[in-house]
């Protein structure tokens, strides 16, 4: 336990001293502010466009924005933030192989599964803080300008995307134990997400796939039912745990 805590502490210090945490926090805050800002600016931009379009004979109806517009932005932008997050952590294990920093830790008796678990914990914690920070900021603005009440199951829908993020972290850890370079790890992680997306094009399979959680914003307008997502949530959690276990097993064999 002490070894695990010491290694986790090292990961934490790394997160802070490399500036990674600060960058991610600011970035996710930026994303959080951008969502309502874009929503707020939409009518104004429409007006500007309408003026120029009028000359060509087109008329644009006035658009009405509300919290929903902002939340739509949130779900449109969060995948980008997620990708940046994963890119930032793509080398979390491979950088240690390449530099050879882990060998010393392992020869000193640090169990391999503790390495995986410590890195997983730190990434999950960072993702959780960053994600809910972004959510909280968007929520705050929406509350201030409009009314969040018009969207249903706000927290639940957000939790779906959050779980998806954790699944991707587990996948990335597993890939980190298989591949030697961060680009290979990222490509493989992206590949798996893509597979999930492509298989999701089959209507019958969609419900059971992790990437289905990205569409969880459907809950907000009431277009999709909550039940529709439970399957995907359980599958994602299951796959995440399996991924972590597989990562430990693969890593032990190396």
């Amino acid at each position: 336990m002490r070894a695990f805590l010491a290694f986790t502490k090292k990961e934490w210090v790394e997160l802070i001293r490399t500036g990674r945490l600060a960058i991610l926090l600011v970035l996710f805050s930026l994303f959080g502010i951008m969502n309502p800002a874009v929503a707020k600016l939409t009518p104004w931009m429409m007006e500007m466009m309408a003026d120029s379009l009028k000359e060509t004979g087109l008329t644009v109806a006035a658009v009405k924005v509300d919290a929903m517009t902002s939340w739509t932005q949130f779900y449109k932008n969060i995948p980008i933030a997620m990708v940046i997050f994963l890119l930032m952590f793509g080398g979390i294990l491979t950088a240690e192989y390449q530099k050879g920093t882990l060998i010393n830790m392992l020869t000193k008796g640090l169990a391999r599964w503790k390495v995986i678990l410590a890195k997983g914990c730190i990434m999950t914690a960072t993702w959780t803080v960053c994600y809910w920070l972004c959510y909280g900021i968007t929520y705050g603005y929406n509350w201030y300008f409009w009314e969040n009440g018009i969207a249903s199951h706000l927290g639940l829908a957000a939790a779906c995307v959050w779980i998806l993020g954790i699944w991707l972290i587990a996948v990335m850890l597993l890939m980190s134990t298989v591949f030697q370079t961060s680009s290979a790890v990222l490509a493989a992680t992206g590949g798996i997400a893509l597979v999930s997306y492509v298989v999701g094009l089959i209507p019958k399979a969609r419900k059971f796939l992790p990437t289905h959680l990205l569409a969880a914003s459907g809950m907000l307008s009431g277009a999709g039912s909550v039940e529709e997502y439970w399957c995907a949530v359980w599958v994602t959690i299951g796959l995440g745990v399996l991924g972590l276990l597989a990562a430990v097993i693969v890593y032990n064999k190396k």
């Binding site: 805590l5 010491a6 290694f7 010393n104 008796g109």
Partner: peptide, 27 residues
């Protein structure tokens, strides 16, 4: 005790912190 040919350390730690990490791991 093992000293690799080109020992690599975590660049963001100080020697004291690194030794502390090693000590904690060895219990």
């Amino acid at each position: 005790g093992y000293l690799p040919d080109v020992p690599e350390f975590y660049g963001f730690l100080t020697p004291i912190e690194y030794l502390e990490l090693c000590g904690e791991i060895t219990g």
